[in-house]
């Protein structure tokens, strides 16, 4: 069961990081001069989304 749970967590994180990335790209297209700020915030948000998924993966595989 553990690996299945880890896989589902990876799915969720994939959707989440995809949304973060797509919205950031849209924002950069609208306002190219703010690309630097948007990129930093994008990485930060992606890291936070990924954090939740990694909890699930660590619990799924090692727990």
């Amino acid at each position: 069961m553990g690996p299945i749970g880890a896989g589902i967590a990876a799915l969720g994180a994939g959707v989440g990081i995809g949304l973060v990335g797509s919205k950031a790209m849209e924002a950069i297209a609208r306002q190219p001069e703010a690309a630097g700020d948007i990129r930093n915030n994008m990485i930060l948000m992606a890291a936070l989304v990924e954090g939740a998924a990694l909890f699930a993966i660590v619990v799924g595989l090692l727990g």
Partner: peptide, 13 residues
Amino acid sequence: FSLMIRLFANITA
């Protein structure tokens, strides 16, 4: 705790 898990899990993975 999330700082700890994030770095550990990323590098180990």
